[in-house]
Amino acid sequence: MNKWDFSNLGDEIWSTVQDALNTRDFTRLKDEIRFTAENTLNEVRNGFRPNYNDPRDRGNYTEQWFDKQQVMKTQNMVSTQIAKKPAGSVSGILYMVFGFIGTGVFGTTSLIYGIVNLALGTLTSINAIGFGTLFLLAFGSLSMALTGVKLRKRVKRFKKYVRQLRGRNYCSIKELASHIGETDKFVVKDLRKMIDLGMFPEGHIDNNENYLLLNYEIYEHYQRTQDEQKKQSEQEASKQREEAEKRNDPSQKELREAIEEGRRYIRKIREANDAIPGEEISRKLYRLEIITEKIFNYVEQHPEQLPALHKLMSYYLPITLKLVTGYEQLDAQPVQGENIMTAKREIEDTLDTISGAFEKLLDDLFRDIAFDISSDISVLETLLSQEGLTEKDFKK
């Protein structure tokens, strides 16, 4: 292949696309096209002989060598996963040859033997036994011939499977079934028999019977991936059950509704804030929003603190929204007289007061945590002192 000749690449990619169209299985189309392209490009690289006297070629030689080694490694790995002489390739022929010969010989002999005995009227019990023996031999030979046919058909299917693999170390059952014109169930049974016969020495079929995997490494990786997906699905299902239980829990329902109502107030305050151009009041409202959100987040994690939200919900947030709405209306007036300016300043000062109240509420919520930490520190200091491990003891 000429190093700049990519005509075969186009043909191979088109063949891959055509197979996908025929089988209507597009799940592996992208990987197959990439595999075909990489193989073709590697052939181009391997066919190119660098000029070692040219510094540009010397710089690329190592990379090309590694590419070639990787391709050889992949090809060698796949070749060890597929039997060179599949079971039945020789025995199938022998069964067919000797079976059909025996069928012809013993069948013809038994037929002639029976006709002669009937014509001569000498069909005794001994002759009947001889006829039966010849018939059984003919039947056994026919069974041998049919076994050979079955073995040869399996070898042909094996070769079709290998061609459809196209150097890959895994393939979907659906794709293989479509390629040979059989059902998925037939192909799974067929492949399991081939694996048992060593035609795919390291072959496995996944638990869901969706893929043929040609080596232990990829099978283990696939199983780990499936196990992780199963674990994630179970965790997600467990999470959904917990959320459903929380939704049905009356106390959780009350908490959720309280927080949702509070956040609705905050959204309305934010909308009013967006309509007010003043920077100072916007800063105050942003501060108020951040503090309130922290309170909601804390109460979500500590539902026992829900009573602390009652006053916030029943008084502070509604009055805050009312003040902000009033400020928005005052600020929208075309003439800003003394009364309007005074009212706006009073609202801004009141917002500082409300923010301070919210900060104190948030601080009170953390009181128990702070107390527990202080108690732990006191206990630790006492233990260290008893063991003589404090800084005071070292100075002695």
Rank of each mutant, 00 (worst) to 15 (best):
W4L: 13
W4D: 12
D5H: 02
F6L: 13
S7C: 02
L9Y: 01
G10R: 02
D11L: 05
I13M: 03
W14H: 00
T16E: 00
V17G: 00
Q18L: 01
D19G: 05
A20T: 00
A20L: 00
L21M: 02
L21S: 00
R24P: 02
F26L: 04
F26V: 01
L29N: 01
L29Q: 00
D31H: 08
D31P: 05
D31Q: 14
D31T: 07
D31I: 04
E32S: 05
I33H: 00
R34G: 01
T36L: 02
A37G: 02
E38I: 08
E38Y: 04
N39H: 09
T40G: 02
T40Q: 14
L41V: 11
E43N: 10
E43T: 05
R45F: 10
N46L: 07
G47E: 07
F48H: 13
F48K: 08
R49L: 13
R49W: 11
P50M: 03
P50K: 00
N51F: 11
Y52S: 06
Y52E: 14
N53P: 01
N53I: 03
N53F: 13
D54R: 09
D54G: 04
D57P: 10
N60A: 15
Y61H: 14
T62V: 13
W65A: 12
F66P: 03
D67Y: 06
K68N: 11
Q69D: 07
Q70N: 09
V71L: 15
M72P: 01
K73Q: 10
K73H: 12
T74W: 04
Q75S: 12
V78M: 04
S79P: 03
Q81D: 07
Q81E: 11
I82L: 09
I82Q: 03
A83F: 01
A83E: 08
K84D: 13
K84I: 08
K84C: 06
P86W: 09
G88T: 08
V90T: 13
S91V: 10
L94C: 13
L94Y: 14
V97M: 13
F98P: 12
G99L: 10
F100I: 14
G104H: 05
V105S: 04
V105W: 14
V105Y: 15
V105L: 15
